[in-house]
């Protein structure tokens, strides 16, 4: 009996101490870890949209710009599974751009695309690929500017499909599925934007409140 008690107390004590330690560490690191995912995976795509609009960005300005994008993000609840993160690009001399992520069904799973809309003209301001697991050397070529720049300046009513499917996008040779996935993601983003335009604009205008994690 005493032995069983000893076993139980030892195990429970170790588990309790471990739980407390991990919970504490989680409190300290969780926010930073979440920021890292945004900074290293999402923000670079936003930066590429910004650069695609002809805005030069020197290497030493990059970090500051990334911080600005990260700090300026908003969240809007559109009744989906989780709230949508909105990023804002503001540059002198051009109208603000709202950027958010949408997904398409790629060759190796979901393909994530950051899609930017010009808030004044509502035209597409550009796209940037965030996550993909496409075939190296083929599907991954949808990352190239040659492909992504086709989307810049397209209007809300453009046919976001590859030419094979009757749209306006030149697919990457040998990577039809991946090209289709990008077009699909952009199309989904367009539909989301059209359906929730007011909520998105309201969230963007909601001042400098910091988005909750």
């Amino acid at each position: 009996m005493k032995k069983t008690l000893h076993m139980f107390v030892a195990l429970a004590g170790i588990a309790l101490a471990s739980g407390l330690a991990l919970g504490g560490l989680h409190q300290v690191t969780a926010q930073r870890a979440a920021d890292n995912i945004l900074r290293f995976k999402k923000v670079p795509a936003v930066v590429s949209i910004y650069q695609g609009r002809g805005q030069a960005l020197a290497a030493d300005q990059l970090a500051a710009f990334e911080d600005q994008v990260l700090q300026g993000r908003r969240q809007v609840d559109l009744g989906e599974e989780s709230p949508l993160s909105l990023f804002l690009i503001e540059a002198a001399g051009s109208s603000p751009v709202v950027v958010f992520e949408a997904f398409g069904q790629g060759f190796g799973g979901d393909l994530g695309v950051m899609v930017g809309f010009d808030l004044a003209s509502e035209k597409l301001a550009g796209i940037g690929i965030t996550t993909m697991s496409e075939t190296p050397g083929l599907g991954t070529r949808v990352r190239e500017t040659r492909f992504t720049k086709q989307f810049v300046g397209l209007g809300q009513d453009a046919a976001f499909q590859v030419k094979k499917d009757g749209g306006v996008i030149d697919g990457v040779t040998g990577a039809t599925v991946s090209s289709r996935a990008v077009a699909q993601a952009v199309d989904r983003a367009r539909k989301l934007f059209q359906a929730h335009r007011q909520a998105i604009v309201a969230a963007i205008n909601s001042g400098q409140e910091k988005a909750s994690p």
Binding site: A10, A15, A21, L22, V28, T29, A30
Partner: peptide, 27 residues
């Protein structure tokens, strides 16, 4: 009798620590 279970809990605790620290500081 329960030493292996205890070892696994202890080791896993430190591994989860490493996991959290690398995610936050060495992304």
């Amino acid at each position: 009798e329960v030493r292996v279970a205890c070892y696994i809990v202890i080791i896993a605790t430190f591994v989860v620590c490493v996991e959290m620290i690398t995610k936050a500081y060495f992304f």
